[in-house]
Design a protein around this nucleic acid. Sequence first.
DNA 1: GCGTTAAGTTAACACTGTTAACCTGGTTTT
DNA 2: AAAACCAGGTTAACAGTGTTAACTTAACGC
Lengths: 223, 223
Amino acid sequence: MTVNQTATRRSADVEATILAAARDVLAQRGIDGLSMRAVAERVGVSATALYHYFENKDALVERVVQSGFQRFGEYLQQAAEHHPRGSLERVRALGEAYVRFALENQAYFRVLFSLRPGQPQRIADLPDGGGYGLLRAAVVDAMAAGTMRRDDPDLVVMYLWSMTHGLLTIAMACRIEECPELGPGFTGRQPLDLFRAFGTFVHEGLARQPAGAHTRNSGEGSS
Amino acid sequence: MTVNQTATRRSADVEATILAAARDVLAQRGIDGLSMRAVAERVGVSATALYHYFENKDALVERVVQSGFQRFGEYLQQAAEHHPRGSLERVRALGEAYVRFALENQAYFRVLFSLRPGQPQRIADLPDGGGYGLLRAAVVDAMAAGTMRRDDPDLVVMYLWSMTHGLLTIAMACRIEECPELGPGFTGRQPLDLFRAFGTFVHEGLARQPAGAHTRNSGEGSS
DNA sequence: GCGTTAAGTTAACACTGTTAACCTGGTTTT
DNA sequence: AAAACCAGGTTAACAGTGTTAACTTAACGC
């Protein structure tokens, strides 16, 4: 059996090599440049050889996405660790890490959360739920600690997730800093800045503040 | 010159026919099914004939997107009209219309806000700013009327837009109702329900409520 | 040694967007 | 009216895509 073991091991190695090549191609040439032939060439093998390791391109991409979520989860985990459980800072740090990861790995992020009716679909199938569990735990802790309004944690997570993800999606679709038309005060404003600015709204809400409350910069942006 | 006029008019008609065909193909077969040959076949013409009206496929898609935003803007406009200026209901109605349009025209929506480095990019280039101006006006009015916290309106718009858009993006990527793993209370919960549920957070914020304030359903969702 | 099988090859098919060369009929010009 | 022009259409073809089929080749278990 030892030979068989080494065989399957080598096979697994090749598989990993292919995955790494696919990741590289994706990062360098983008999703459109990610073709079977391009990956195969990078591995130094013919395109059809890949079909011995993956059923088809979708399966290959699915594995790339899976490993992407793995890295993503670790990235988030690391960001959370620096802040105590139950603190709002921990929740905020997760959000900022989300934004940073997306901006640093744009091609990756585009594929991970591709709108196309492709692979992922089931969030629970992803490693660590694609960071969902991490954020949920932080929210539950914050509620328990009394630093956050008590409500359905899944609803709150979805709310925070939506806001963050939507910001990134919009930012990547039309590169906010290149859209001065968006608003007078938006030129050069990076997504991470905007995310931080959202913090006030998330914390205090958009309702009319009680009389006498301090508004940060009321009525400024419209000139 | 009358002949020339009718000529260009007919030409414009054919162009419109092609665009309509492209929209149909997109709606029926999705973005992957939207090929030049498919559109041409629907028009009853050879694929290369399309190149007399559009420089290439990207240009054609760009026009489809443009007309999509047009319809989108009108859809939003109509939704807003039923609520008085300055009211929060008007802002909320715009958000709900956003969600409804996206769900009713999924293939369209996927293309409109495609993550791929494609056409739109400049929001201001779109008809009515892709609804941005509409929402901004509603927000400015609400602030002026005192029904909404006074702050940089563009920041608030971006916040609301991000939240709504993110919800849709996530919902379409993993079909929330098919993701019971997302949360115990999520099964069968439609995006529009979630959007409405977010309303409380947007309004009041996530901060710990002052003692004695009513929390809607504290701690319910986890068991 | 022999059969099996994994892992690779090349050739080919059906697609895709796109270009080139060509035709054709109405418009414009002389 | 004859000639030139040109918008609008055609078919053939090219390069690229994912994918399948048939074939080789080497290593393994018996």
